[in-house]
C-alpha cells in the first residue's frame, strides 16, 4: 500500500516541481511548462492533428504492418528451405548491421521525399527484427513436436500452420516488438530528414527556428506516442499469447 502511494506520488511531485520551477523561467531553452502545454493544445489539438499527427501515425502503422507480414513470411521461407537460408544468411546479417536510420538517405535519393519513401523506409528497416526472430523461433521448435506431427501424418500445410506457427509465435512477438521500436525511430528520422510534414518534421523545424515551446510540445507528443504504442502492443501480445503466458506461469508455479 505504502509502495503504491510512493509510486503515484513521485511522478506527480516531479511534474509539480517542473511546473513551479519553470513557472517564471526566462531561459530560452527551458520555457515554463504552462507555455508548453498551451502550445501543445494549440498545435496538436486539433489544428495539425489531421495534417501531421494522423499522417505520421498512418505511415507508422502501414510501414509496420508491411514489415510484420513480409518479415514473418520471409522468415518462414528462410527457415523452412535450407538453400534459401544459406543464400540469405550473410546478406541478412550484413543488412542487419546497418543502422536502420542510415538507410533513410538512400531511400530519399531513390524515391524522393514523399510518403512513399517514408513508408518504404519504415517497412524495410522494421523487417529484419521480425524476420530474424521468426527464423530463430521456427528453428528452436522442439524436434519431438515435429516428430509427433509426422507420426500423426499431418500434411505439410497443417504442420506449418497448426504446429510451427503457434510454437514460434512467442519469439515472433519479441521480434515484432523490436520492429515496432525501429519503425517508430525511422518514422521520426524520415520526417526529420528533409520533409515538411509530420510530427518529427514539425519538432525539428520548431527547434531550428528557436520556437522552443513548440519543440517541447513536439517532444512531449512523440514521447506519449512512443509510450502508448508500446502499451497497445503489450495488450495485443497478452491477448494473442494468453495460452503461452498462462502455461509459463503454470510451469513456474509447479
Amino acid at each position: 500500500m505504502r509502495n503504491w502511494v510512493i509510486g503515484i506520488a513521485a511522478p506527480v511531485l516531479l511534474l509539480v516541481a517542473w511546473w513551479f520551477l519553470s513557472a517564471n523561467s526566462t531561459d530560452p531553452f527551458f520555457p515554463p511548462l504552462e507555455t508548453i502545454i498551451v502550445r501543445f493544445r494549440e498545435l496538436w489539438l486539433f489544428e495539425h492533428f489531421q495534417s501531421d499527427v494522423l499522417l505520421s501515425l498512418g505511415n507508422l502503422f502501414l510501414g509496420f504492418a508491411i514489415a510484420a507480414i513480409a518479415g514473418i513470411a520471409l522468415g518462414f521461407a528462410t527457415a523452412l528451405v535450407a538453400p534459401v537460408r544459406w543464400m540469405m544468411d550473410p546478406l541478412i546479417h550484413f543488412l542487419r548491421g546497418i543502422p536502420p536510420v542510415a538507410l533513410v538517405p538512400i531511400f530519399i535519393s531513390l524515391i524522393g521525399f514523399g510518403t512513399q519513401m517514408r513508408v518504404t523506409s519504415i517497412a524495410l528497416a522494421a523487417l529484419f527484427p521480425t524476420m530474424i526472430a521468426t527464423v530463430d523461433g521456427i528453428r528452436s521448435v522442439s524436434s519431438d513436436l515435429m516428430d509427433v506431427a509426422k507420426v500423426y501424418r499431418l500434411t505439410r500445410k497443417e504442420r506449418v500452420l497448426d504446429v510451427l506457427l503457434p510454437a514460434a509465435t512467442p519469439q515472433i512477438f519479441s521480434g515484432l516488438q523490436v520492429s515496432l521500436q525501429v519503425a517508430f525511430i525511422v518514422m521520426i528520422a524520415s520526417e526529420m530528414l528533409g520533409s515538411s510534414q509530420g510530427i518529427g518534421a514539425m519538432t525539428l523545424l520548431a527547434q531550428q527556428s528557436f520556437m522552443t515551446a513548440d519543440m517541447w510540445a513536439g517532444i512531449l507528443l512523440l514521447g506519449v506516442i512512443g509510450f502508448l504504442v508500446n502499451i497497445l502492443f503489450s495488450l495485443l501480445r497478452r491477448k494473442v499469447l494468453s495460452w503461452y503466458i498462462g502455461s509459463r506461469r503454470l510451469a513456474r508455479a509447479s
Binding site: 505504502r2 509502495n3 503504491w4 510512493i6 509510486g7 503515484i8 506520488a9 513521485a10 511522478p11 516531479l14 531553452f29 536510420v101 521500436q181 517508430f184 525511430i185 521520426i188 528520422a189 526529420m192 519538432t203 525539428l204 520548431a206 527547434q207 528557436f210 522552443t212 519543440m215 517541447w216 513536439g218 517532444i219 512523440l222 514521447g223 512512443g226 509510450f227 504504442v229 508500446n230
Partner: peptide, 28 residues
C-alpha cells in the same frame, strides 16, 4: 523497495522513448 516504486512510473514511461525524440532538445 521504496526507491523502486518511486522511479517505476518514470522508468516505464521513458523506456519505450527512443533518444531520437529528444534529439531536437539536445541539439538546441
Amino acid at each position: 523497495e521504496s526507491v523502486k516504486y518511486a522511479t517505476l512510473a518514470v522508468l516505464e514511461f521513458l523506456k519505450p522513448v527512443p533518444p531520437i525524440v529528444i534529439l531536437p532538445l539536445a541539439v538546441l
